[in-house]
Amino acid sequence: MLPALVLGVRLDKPGQSPGSNGLKILTRLRERGYKPGYLTGDRAYNNSEPGEWQLPIRAMGYKPVYDYRADQLGKQAETKGAILVEGTWYCPSMPQPLINATIDLHADRIDRETWTRYIAARKPYRLMPKENPDDEGHQRMMCPAEAGKAQCPLKPHTLGRGIHLPLVDPEPNPAGAVKVCRQRTVTVAPEAGAKHWQAHEYGGQEWQKIYFRLRNSVEGSNGYAKDPLAEGIEAAGSRRIRGIAAQTILLAYQLAHANRRKIIKWLDTLALGGERPRRRTHHRRKTKPLANWTPAGYMAPAA
């Protein structure tokens, strides 16, 4: 596996415009031919203004994968009757315990096993994409009952499909059914719920695999470059000069050296030119590690 390297850096005050600073780095990487993929960061990034981070990165082709602050959990936005719950569009009649699952977990009203079941139980209520987003980012989304994932009395032709599909229980509305419940599909604009929308269902297996892998890579790279016996970027004494421009240049040299150190160590584990590797890779045991028994859906406690 290739080592995770630092490809860009901008220096600013702590917490100062992380979105706009991150966007400038991604723009330079794009100019150099790097292809977009999944993208994550700490909670400061998805707390940016959508026009400074969330919408531009999606326009560039990145797929955001976010975690949320405690006050951003549950229902986050609404469009045409559909509700955005922790980054994903769902049927407006999704049961309240499923909407508040992560809120209740943080408040210790449910345990992690129950939370995992509730996260999985959200899936049949998710709006399904009918087609890929168009050139402007608008996407046709299908009601879950119309997509064959649920049954809804507002759409009688979806009933009688079997007890394996949940039966939606819409609340009576004097104004009549909302648009997503009247139509087979609705168009979701890119601005709708842009602050919190993400590519995968929050807490699901795919989300966990991508989010924790990317976040661990970031934190691991930070820790690697902070090694006091190597670059020690956390120590201000290693850059004894004033001015953000000078500090940025020195930090860039330190990170470049950390990259070089990591690449050399990686190359030493490879058999090149018919020679044996200079360094042995980590011994991989044939027995199962303790992590294999981690409960599905496990998340680190909220800070």
Rank of each mutant, 00 (worst) to 15 (best):
L159H: 08
L55W: 05
A296N: 08
W207L: 08
Y202G: 06
R58I: 02
I249C: 00
L127H: 04
P3V: 04
E52I: 01
C143T: 03
D104W: 04
A246D: 11
P3R: 03
T102V: 11
R261L: 12
Y202D: 09
K226G: 01
I119D: 02
I233D: 00
G297A: 06
P277Y: 06
N132P: 00
P156G: 07
W266S: 10
R280A: 15
N21H: 14
K149C: 09
Q16F: 13
K226P: 03
E49N: 15
T287M: 05
A192M: 06
Y298T: 11
A258K: 03
N100Y: 05
A82M: 11
A302G: 00
L272S: 01
L250I: 13
A150S: 15
R161K: 15
M141V: 11
E146Q: 14
T281S: 10
V168I: 15
G19E: 02
N100H: 08
E31T: 10
C143A: 14
L167I: 12
L73A: 02
A145H: 05
S217R: 11
L26G: 03
K286E: 15
Q72Y: 01
Q96P: 01
G41K: 01
G81E: 06
R215V: 06
A175V: 01
Y118N: 08
P301H: 05
L127Y: 05
R182T: 07
T248V: 04
Y118V: 00
I119A: 11
A147Q: 03
G243H: 11
P156W: 07
L11I: 13
I163P: 00
E191P: 01
L250V: 13
V6I: 15
Y38M: 01
Q54A: 15
A194Q: 05
I163H: 13
W53M: 11
I233G: 03
K130Y: 11
I83N: 03
W53A: 04
A303E: 06
I163F: 07
P172W: 08
P56N: 15
L167D: 06
T185Q: 10
L159M: 15
A302C: 08
H157N: 09
A4C: 13
A77Y: 12
C91W: 06
L290T: 14
G223R: 04
L159E: 05
G237D: 10
A101I: 02
H138G: 00
V180N: 02
E171I: 12
T88S: 15
G220S: 04
K195F: 09
I83F: 12
N132W: 02
K265P: 01
R279D: 11
K226L: 02
L255V: 04
K265T: 10
L255G: 04
I163M: 08
I103H: 01
R28I: 03
A120I: 10
N222K: 03
G193W: 04
L167K: 12
M142G: 06
A4V: 15
N46K: 09
V85H: 02
